[in-house]
């Protein structure tokens, strides 16, 4: 008889006393692949730098974001240019406030909008899509038609309406963006769920008698997380752009709060007076943030789905 082999059994007996070996999960493989992708690593470093800037940049500011520099306020074009001597590293805005402090504040709000929207998309979209795809049949029909209907509503219109009716506030903006951001995610997740639920390991769980909701949470969702993480990362810059557009229309966050979009909008309207720094700095941070997110998202896609390369 081939089994049990004496040598094997001795090996087993020896190994029983041995320490447990740590497993190499698919996630740790992905980390290795990600770290080999130079563009993605640079994107991540830049992104971390920007987030640190938005969180702690205020400590290095000589002026707060509300103080008005009365001495220079009258003649911004001539005296409000960026300068290290007077502490206005990024210059002054049209009201005599410190652009550095304003940019820190705006970056923070813009990234927050992106992260919150994307978080809602991950939680709501993943659960909704996974449940719809896994249970299938009538449940799936109803849930997905609902998404179709919601998607057919011009969301920009609804968002603007919300902001007009309930007043412009950052809370309303979060609600509005949260309402729409999960729709695409739920569709993507549902499609992926349909593939995963036909895999044999799901059948094995069903045959054993594992309860349906537990199958969704323990077998389906963990196998979706790759695509969810990638899509969520790529969703953030989209949401930042949406917020900027609304702010550009003058409907976004309200003074004295600000966002990159609001700053760009203001800067663009003042450009004709020769105060280009009011546009340049927010625009620079806006673009660098977007690129950093795109690079990180692409890097994640390659790292988590090696077959796609």
């Amino acid at each position: 008889m081939v089994y049990p082999d004496k040598a094997v059994m001795e090996g087993v007996a020896q190994a029983t006393g041995m320490a447990e070996v740590k497993g190499r999960s698919l996630w740790s493989d992905a980390v290795t692949r990600y770290s080999r992708n130079r563009a993605a690593v640079i994107g991540l470093v830049v992104l971390i730098a920007i987030i640190l800037f938005s969180l702690f940049g205020g400590f290095f500011a000589a002026w707060s974001n509300e103080e008005i520099d009365w001495g220079r306020m009258g003649n911004i074009a001539a005296t409000g240019a960026p300068s290290f001597e007077n502490g206005h590293y990024f210059g002054l805005d049209d009201l005599g406030r410190d652009m550095y402090a304003r940019t820190v504040q705006g970056t923070r709000i813009s990234i927050l909008v992106g992260l919150v929207g994307s978080f809602v998309a991950v939680v709501v979209g993943t659960l909704y899509g996974a449940v719809s795809g896994y249970f299938g049949g009538r449940t799936d029909q109803i849930m997905m038609r609902t998404v179709d209907i919601l998607m057919s509503i011009p969301f920009m219109f609804v968002l603007i309406l919300l902001l007009v009716i309930f007043g412009r506030s950052i809370g309303m903006l979060f609600v509005g963006i949260g309402l729409i951001s999960w729709l695409d995610m739920s569709r993507i997740v549902r499609g992926q769920t349909l593939t995963i639920k036909n895999k044999e390991f799901v059948e094995a769980a069903i045959a054993t008698g594992v309860k349906p909701m537990r199958i969704v949470l323990r077998h389906i969702v963990p196998n979706l997380l790759g695509i969810v993480v990638v899509y969520a990362t790529l969703l953030i810059p989209g949401l930042i752009i949406t917020e900027s557009f609304i702010s550009f229309l003058g409907l976004g966050v309200q003074e004295p709060s600000t966002s990159l979009g609001a700053l760009i909008s203001k800067g663009a309207s003042q450009m004709q007076y020769g105060v280009i720094w009011q546009l340049g700095f927010p625009l620079f941070f806006f673009l660098v943030t977007l690129f950093a997110f795109f690079f990180v998202g692409d890097g994640l896609r390659d790292a988590l789905d090696p077959k796609d390369r």
Partner: peptide, 10 residues
């Protein structure tokens, strides 16, 4: 016939 210390492997 599996080594029990591989319990955490994938």
């Amino acid at each position: 016939g599996l080594l029990p210390n591989l319990i955490n492997r994938y």
